[in-house]
Design a protein around this nucleic acid. Structure first.
Length: 444
RNA sequence: GCAGCAGUAGCUCAGUUGGUUAGAGCACUAGUUUGUGGAACUAGGGGUCGGUGGUUCGAAUCCACCCUGCUGUACCA
């Protein structure tokens, strides 16, 4: 007798992928509806591009090509490499280049779509997630950059955040450019290491960043990270730059002025904001939450930003000779949902069906008629989907959080009255069929 | 990727220096005179103790390697 090893299919999900339940999806839908309304108000048009692109369309032309093959999910189709998109900006650049002659200039579009990243997930951070992205293509006006920040604020506040819950941090790639010129830092690799180091100041503090700018840093677990090996006098100059309280670069001075005209103050200049390394060319923004976010064990976690963006004047140009300076901003919708769901006062209304219990299959006609009457009023109702004892039907109704059950059995049919049981109070009442809708409305 | 810690039922965990048939709570299923949920009671199902190999008369327990998860770190367009 041979022992057969049954290899059952795995019920586990691939690393970084999750099932999303209704509770979360309702919040997501709520945010999306806010986004769509705001987008219309601000005059952006919707666009949908495919999940897959040719790998070179979304990767090859990016200047930030430190690790071209990592971070994306790819496969070879015939002889060409395809990749799942990792953001919505690269596909936009491709779209603009492809449709340059037809689209209005400037071009304002927004997009909601799933993106995929092949990297290590963290709390509230997955390998598949929904991103929202809005961009202006074809204008150098900082009015566009300002409008993006104001617009994001409006979306966040409509979705349930208070002004004190978030802040938009601004900086400019020009600051670091000037700084590197000043300290004569020209080696590209060193530049990137230095930028990455600066980006970590909120987490590691200046002392940690200083180590990363110099020889390197050992983390809590004892792991060592190589530094940028800058001279200590140059590190001092960097420290001085980081202490600047108000922006000196032309673009940010202008941006702040426009913010004033908008009466928008929920921003803060922070020269340590980096984002996207060499990808950006000018102003950059980052949307940060100001309240603590916890994991499922109640521990406060390092949540990071929920979105950001900035000016990328050269991206579309990589596809050819296009005059398409651009600026854009994106939000990680799922991260915003995750954070929003932790705010106690935040609730989205769920509509659960009233359950009509089944006593006798031969009365199905009565049940269906009743169901039709109630559904005509736009009220959620269902006939118990199955054949079970009444107890099971009640347990089912309770489990799905139904507000009430309708009992329409032998007794009721005989007397011509329906029994309506309120499931939160447990109270039952006997009512005429024509009154049923009114009574239900009182409960839900 | 690197480092530290961890992996026993669907979930949260117990399992004594290696010793019979591996336990509990919650959840689940069926009942407690069949027309009543969220409480109680009774009974039941469910685990090759993450995997593979080794040490041993004997491994959930010891060793090696692998896998997975958590945390930090790197990367994050």
């Amino acid at each position: 007798m041979t022992k057969e090893k049954k290899s059952k299919p795995s019920k586990e999900l691939p690393l970084g992928f999750v099932d999303r339940q209704e509770k979360e999806l309702l919040v997501r839908d709520f945010i999306i509806s806010n986004i769509k309304e705001v987008m219309i108000k601000y005059g952006f048009q919707n666009l949908e591009t495919p999940s897959f692109e040719y790998s070179d369309s979304i990767g090859k032309f990016l200047p930030d090509k430190d690790r071209p093959d990592e971070g994306v999910f790819s496969f070879k189709d015939e002889n060409k490499w395809l990749s799942l998109r990792y953001d919505l900006t690269a596909p936009l650049a491709r779209y603009v280049a492809k449709n340059y002659l037809e689209i209005p200039k400037p071009f304002k579009r927004y997009q909601l779509g799933t993106v995929w990243r092949n990297e290590k997930p963290g709390p509230g951070r997955f390998r598949e997630f929904l991103q929202f992205d809005a961009d202006f293509v074809g204008t150098t006006s900082l009015q566009a950059d300002a409008e993006l920040c104001v617009m994001i604020s409006e979306i966040l506040e409509r979705s349930g955040l208070a002004k004190s819950d978030y802040i938009i941090k601004i900086s400019s790639r020009k600051i670091t450019e000037e700084l590197f010129k000043k300290i004569n830092l020209i080696d590209n690799k060193q530049k990137l290491t230095a930028l990455r180091a600066l980006d970590k100041i909120d987490r590691l503090g200046w002392s940690g960043v200083k180590e990363l700018l110099g020889a390197g840093r050992k983390d809590k677990s004892g792991d060592f990270t190589k530094g940028a090996n800058l001279k200590s006098k140059d590190i001092v100059k960097i420290e001085e730059t980081l202490k600047i309280k108000s922006p000196k670069t032309e673009d940010l001075v202008e941006l702040v002025k426009i913010f004033k005209d908008y009466n928008f103050n929920n921003f803060e200049f922070d020269p340590s904001i980096i984002r996207g390394l060499e990808y950006y060319t000018g102003a950059i923004f980052e949307v940060n939450l100001k309240f603590d976010v916890t994991n499922n064990k109640g521990q406060v976690i390092q949540f990071g930003s929920i979105g950001g963006g900035g000016r990328y004047d050269n991206l579309v140009n990589n596809f050819g000779n296009f005059n398409a300076p651009a600026t854009g901003i994106s939000i990680g919708i799922d991260r915003l949902v995750y954070a929003l769901m932790q705010k106690k006062e935040f609730k989205v209304k769920q509509t659960k069906p009233i359950v009509i219990c089944v006593f006798d299959k031969n009365s199905m006609r009565e049940y269906i008629n009743l169901q039709t009457i109630i559904r005509k009023e736009g009220i959620s109702v269902e006939i118990y989907p199955g054949v079970s004892k009444l107890k099971k039907q009640m347990e089912y109704a309770n489990k799905i959080n139904s507000p009430a059950v309708i009992l329409y059995g032998e007794n009721e049919i005989k007397s011509g009255k329906i029994t309506l049981r309120n499931l939160s109070s447990g109270k039952e009442q006997s009512i005429e069929i024509k009154e049923i809708v009114n009574e239900i409305k009182k409960i839900i």
